[in-house]
Amino acid sequence: MASRKTSHPNRDSEDKYSILLPTYNERENLPLIVWLLVKYFGESGYNYEIIVIDDGSPDGTLEVAEQLQKIYGEDKILLRPRAKKLGLGTAYIHGMKHATGNFIFIMDADLSHHPKFIPEFIEKQKEGNYDLVSGTRYQGSGGVYGWDLRRKLISRGANFLSQVLLRPGASDLTGSFRLYKKAVLDSLVERCVSKGYVFQMEMIVRARQLNYTIGEVPISFVDRVYGESKLGGNEIVSFVKGLITLFATT
C-alpha cells in the first residue's frame, strides 16, 4: 500500500490497459467518465488508452469526445466511431481491433461503473494471473444504488436461477465491468453469438467452458444519473431467452 503514495508506482510495468467505452447518447456522461479514468490511471500509474466507440449518437457525443481528445491527447483518447447504432456486442469487436493494450477493460460509459475500482481489478488480475476479472454486485462489499425492492428481487431471483442452471463459476453474470487478457477476449468474442444484454452472460459462461480462470472484485453499481438506458424494456424477456439458449447450448 505504501507504494501507492509515490507518484507513479506502476509506470515501469510493461502492461498496457485499453478501456473500451461504447457510447450512445452519452454527451453528459462521457467527459465525466473520462475524467475519472484519467484520475485513477494517473494516480496508479498504469499505462492506458481509452477507446471511445460512438455509434453516431444524435446528441453530439462524438463532438464532446473530440474535445476530450484535444484536452488529454491522441495517445490517451482514441476515437473509433461508427456511422449508426449497430449494437453493443459489435461495438466491442470494433473497438478491440484498434486496441494496443495487452489487457482490455470493458465498462459502461454511463457512470454506473466507477473507475475507482480499476486498480482493484488490476491487482486482482495480477494476484492470480487470472484470464478475466469480473466485477460483482452480489458479493462482499458489492452492491447497488437507486434500486427499489422490486428490482432487487428480480435481479437476485434471476441471478439465483442462472447460478442453479448454468453453474458459471462467477457471481455476476450480467454485469459488464470486466478486465480481460487481450487474447482471451479475442477468443471469447469469436465464439459469442448473443446480442445486447445476453452477450455479457454468454461471455462469462463460455469463459468457464473454455477453462479460463476468473477472478472477482466487488463493485458498487450506481444507476445512471444522466441520460437514459438503451436496453431496458424487455430486459426480462431477453434474459429468459438468453438463459434458455445458454442452458441448451453450453
Binding site: P31, L32, V144, Y145, K152, R156
Partner: peptide, 28 residues
C-alpha cells in the same frame, strides 16, 4: 429463503452515490 436473504442483504451503496456526486462536481 436464499433469494429472500440476498434481497434483504443487498447492499445499498449510499456512500458510493454521494462520492460520485462530489466527483461529478469536481470533474465539471
Amino acid at each position: 429463503a436464499t433469494v429472500g436473504y440476498r434481497v434483504a442483504t443487498f447492499n445499498d451503496c449510499e456512500e458510493a452515490a454521494k462520492e460520485l456526486q462530489g466527483q461529478i462536481k469536481e470533474a465539471k
